[in-house]
């Protein structure tokens, strides 16, 4: 058994919230730079140039990359030999978010009730997903998620006979509907399989994976590559104003499913696809 104090967790979550919002994850940053070099639409290239300038200003002048500093999605993998001491884990995570958003001058975007809509003033609560895993470490991934792109996400309960062609159709339909609203160039996180809720979670998890890393399953890797190519052939382009760069990456995660089903969830991430992982 290894003891981890809640103070250590609070402090890490706080720092991760700030880091994610001021400095873009290196995989996404590199991908925008690469897209700028390759974009053939003059307007598209101009928008990508603005995004690169924006990243420099954010880091150098301490201004968040985007004013929508997101709802904080937290994935916690808890080694089963870990003992959390000094308090309750969930409260510690929310305290870390609270401190990060206050001390980091980040926008408070959460309302306490979806219909009454009063701002909680501290960006809590986060959305927290726990996994119990072997070992004596705590792996935490945070992803502050903006809602311009979240709003354009979809889930489909396909039939097994729809196969990979049906999956492609639904993904392309979602990207087309998202259009300029999702702040392209986008990152597309896709969940395939599981149940209704598991599939959505897979899609979210897919958005936190490095976009330069392809699936280790050959048929899924092929689907990722074909989808990326098909999406970039749609011409939506940077800011939805036309061009070759509509998506920076397509990440797919899968899970076993029922003999009767083929759930597909498409979670759209904007070009400010923020994710930070730490192991404690």
């Amino acid at each position: 058994m290894r003891n981890i104090s809640i103070e250590e967790i609070i402090s890490n979550i706080k720092d991760m919230c700030i880091e994610a919002n001021y400095k873009l994850a290196s995989d996404v940053d590199a991908s925008i730079r690469d897209a700028y070099d390759k974009e053939i639409s003059p307007l598209g290239k101009r928008v990508l140039g603005q995004l690169l300038d924006n990243l420099d200003i954010a880091e150098n002048d301490l201004i968040p990359i985007c004013q929508d500093t997101g709802m904080v999605i937290v994935f916690v993998a808890i080694g089963q030999e870990v003992h959390i001491e000094g308090g309750f884990l969930e409260e510690a995570i929310n305290e870390g978010i609270r401190r990060g958003y206050q001390e980091g001058y980040l926008r408070k975007s959460i309302v306490s009730d979806p219909l009454i809509r009063n701002n909680t003033q501290d960006n809590t609560p986060g959305i927290i997903h726990y996994d119990i895993v072997p070992g004596n470490q705590l792996e935490i991934t945070i992803s502050p998620k903006g809602f311009g792109s979240e709003n354009m996400s979809r889930i489909y309960m396909l039939k097994p006979s729809d196969e990979d062609q049906g999956i492609k159709k639904t993904v392309l339909e979602t990207v087309k509907l998202a259009g300029p609203n999702a702040c392209p160039p986008i990152v597309v996180g896709i969940g395939i399989g599981g149940s209704f809720e598991k599939c959505a979670l897979l899609a979210k998890r897919a958005l936190t994976r490095d976009i330069s890393i392809r699936s280790d399953k050959p048929h899924i890797r092929k689907l990722e590559e074909e989808l990326l190519s098909a999406i970039n052939d749609m011409g939506i382009g940077p800011a939805g104003l036309g061009g070759r760069t509509t998506a920076l990456g397509v990440n797919i995660e899968t899970y076993p499913t029922h003999i009767a089903g083929l759930p597909v969830a498409v979670n759209i991430g904007c070009h400010v696809n923020r994710h930070v992982t730490r192991v404690i």
């Binding site: 200003i57 002048d61 990359i65 408070k108 975007s109």
Partner: peptide, 26 residues
């Protein structure tokens, strides 16, 4: 341009809240 909030903020030279202060960022 969406997601270029740091860049765009540089063109804002004055800012003051004139109504609905209780809405915070809104």
């Amino acid at each position: 341009t969406g997601g270029a909030g740091a860049l765009l903020s540089k063109c804002i030279k004055e800012s003051k809240v004139i109504a609905y202060d209780d809405l915070g960022t809104e």
